[in-house]
């Protein structure tokens, strides 16, 4: 039961052109930055990426966009990226915008073995076009189909060699639900430990969902919007 691989290059070795990937993170927070760097290096193309955001111009999925590796983005919010905007307007990039809660819950549904969900998000809007609507107790809900991803790539704070994962603060975000949803799930962690070192009561993602794990070195963990309070001068 040793799922440890040598690093990001080995973890993504069989990701091929045209595949569908889930990438964890909210903005740049909790982003699998080592695997993204390896994907950029490998140069795989025609990818469909399911991720809440599309990174910024020089970090996150923005790096893959710059290399024209992404055919389609499935996201809830894609601002803050000029190259993304250019490719979208020129028709080089296809984008499917999905409400954030729907996006998260469709990952969860895949991980729970459920083919679809019913959600009120998007009823009466253009998101509902072409989708089945069911009425429960007087309220309309859209039927949304669970995602089907070849790989899910997530970032955790700590993980053990059996693939059990623990996330830190709001870097948790989409990572646990995406970890459950990939046919193959890759986890990169800041600290890889031996079985028994993580308290079973504190595991967020049980190792059964994780196929490959490695410890990344020197995480940049870039901050997108640095906002601070001024300390009153004593």
């Amino acid at each position: 039961m040793n799922k440890v691989v040598s690093g990001a290059d080995e973890a993504i070795r069989d990701i091929a052109d045209g595949m569908t990937l889930m990438l964890g993170g909210f903005g740049l927070c909790g982003l699998p930055e080592k695997c993204i760097a390896a994907l950029v290096k490998k140069g795989v193309k025609e990818l469909t990426c399911i991720s809440n955001n599309a990174g910024v111009d020089d970090f996150g999925i923005g790096l893959m966009l710059k290399q024209r590796q992404v055919k389609k983005m499935i996201s809830s919010y894609v601002g803050e990226n000029a190259e993304f905007e250019r490719q979208l307007l020129s028709g080089e990039l296809e984008v499917e915008l999905i409400p954030q809660g729907t996006l998260a819950t469709l990952c969860m549904a895949a991980g729970y073995g459920m083919p679809a969900i019913f959600t009120p998000a998007g009823v009466g809007t253009e998101v509902a076009i072409g989708k089945e609507i069911r009425n429960f107790s007087g309220k309309d809900y859209l039927m949304e189909m669970a995602f089907d991803a070849d790989f899910a790539i997530v970032k955790a704070w700590k993980g053990d060699t059996m693939g059990n994962l623990v996330y830190r603060s709001t870097a948790r975000n989409f990572n646990p639900v995406m970890a459950m949803a990939g046919k193959i799930t890759i986890a990169e962690v800041e600290e890889l430990v031996q079985p028994g070192e993580l308290d079973p009561d504190h595991i967020h993602t049980p190792g059964i969902y994780v196929h490959r794990i490695f410890q990344g070195e020197n995480y940049e963990k870039r901050i997108e919007q640095r906002t601070v309070r001024i300390r009153e001068q004593g």
Binding site: F26, G27, L28, C29, G30, W157, R168, S169, T170, A171, K221, R222, I223, E224, Q225, R226, T227, V228, R229, I230, R231
Partner: peptide, 20 residues
């Protein structure tokens, strides 16, 4: 509220992606 300068944590952000 926002953190004091020097106490920002990349793992602690709000939905606007601001450090909190």
């Amino acid at each position: 509220p926002f953190p004091f300068e020097g106490e920002e944590d990349a793992d602690v952000i709000n939905a606007g992606k601001q450090t909190i």
